[in-house]
Design a protein around this nucleic acid. Structure first.
Lengths: 213, 213
DNA sequence: CGATAGGTTGACGGTTCTCAAGGGAGGTGG
DNA sequence: CCACCTCCCTTGAGAACCGTCAACCTATCG
């Protein structure tokens, strides 16, 4: 992307935050105007079904983009809430679309982001065991954190057990039990929300079929 | 979209087919060059995991586009196979990308298609009962067929029970049993692959939480 | 007519959910 | 500083749903 385009992109960015744990970035039904990139913190996207159950669509770390599933529609189809202190860059979608017609690299980037989301959504949709799902969650998180310069083997969970459960389609009790068993088997050290991947290779092996490696 | 743009679009279309049941449109690992719109028939996209199990990503009817999940990558991440006699329009992706920069309506259309796929992938990912999943599959199929001018209440399944099972993350036996129970309860009339939705309202009610209505 | 693939049905077992109760950390107010 | 409260998490017992295994059935086709 050339200098002028970067400047254009800079022009339509709106910096948002800090948001604090529990603050919503947007809610289901809000008019869709913008996508947003996480700059710091963790954002959880989720919906509540008519039976009152929460379904977590994803956890979004710094560098990741939220709101792409809202493009097809007038309103956001889900909620987005900060799990800790969050900083965002907000991009007006009509404006970034126009810019994308002038900057092919930007268009391509958006295409790829969306394409990746389609693939990711399909991964966890498979029918995996609780162990496989938990391992793939942990390995996925670890890799994404490592890619952003954080430690790959030792990190804090920013989400509650219940959030993990609603993301992995498990009962919170099952999340608790799997984590305990992983710890008993030496795969993991767990202390409240602090995690250490003690046997990364074994976790990778469990996660491999889910992550398609 | 104006006349000249339509002509441009026409220029980069390649008509493919007829393909016959079992013919592959593309396979996992093939170099990604093009997306394709189904013109006639049904295409199944699927992957085979390292445990040898097949995961069906979707069934694609006339008017629907396949290959969008391949944009982020050099190769197709899944297989696409014809379930019956299939006609396709193939669009070179590099060329349609370039065209999209000149035709904002086309860019917007592609964005929306991809956004919709992200949402759809998330829907079936929830933890629904076998009954809810089957009902939402049938209602979804019925609606998509109706939107294309086919009968909404009476149609032929183009896919095997096993395919439905691998799509819904159920055992084939469970698919068989649920269909039988739906028939016994008067929701459905099933004769091999021919279906009649006898109590659409009850099926809709079952499917509602999944389809978010 | 036999072979084969796809579909159905039944019995059984396992993984995970539900329900219920019991910790433990962190915050608040006395 | 400590009691108390609340939220989150853990642990246990039992049940339910669905998967697995096995047998059988029924079209279709050579």
């Amino acid at each position: 992307m050339d200098k002028a385009s970067l400047k254009d992109l800079h022009m339509l960015v709106e910096h948002v935050g800090p948001l604090h744990a529990g603050d919503h970035v947007f809610r289901e039904g809000d008019p869709f105007e913008a996508i947003a990139a996480v700059r710091a913190g963790t954002v959880k996207t989720y919906i509540v079904d008519r039976e009152g159950r929460e379904h977590v669509l994803g956890f979004h770390l710094p560098g990741e983009v939220i709101g792409l599933n809202a493009i097809d529609g007038e309103t956001y189809p889900c909620n987005a809430v900060a799990l800790d202190t969050v900083m965002l860059c907000r991009f007006s979608f009509p404006r970034i679309s126009v810019l994308a017609t002038r900057v092919p690299g930007l268009q391509q980037h958006l295409f790829r982001l969306m394409s990746r989301d389609i693939g990711n959504a399909a991964l966890l949709a498979g029918d995996w065991s609780a162990d496989q799902r938990m391992a793939s969650f942990l390995i996925g998180l670890s890799r994404r954190l490592a890619a952003r310069g954080f430690s790959a083997d030792r990190f804090q969970l920013t989400m509650a057990r219940t959030d993990i459960a609603n993301y992995l389609r498990l009962a919170p009790e099952t999340v608790s039990r799997v984590l305990k068993r992983f710890q008993d088997d030496g795969l993991l050290k767990v202390d409240r929300r602090e995690l250490e991947l003690a046997a990364r290779d074994k976790l990778e092996a469990l996660a491999a079929p889910v992550l398609r490696l």
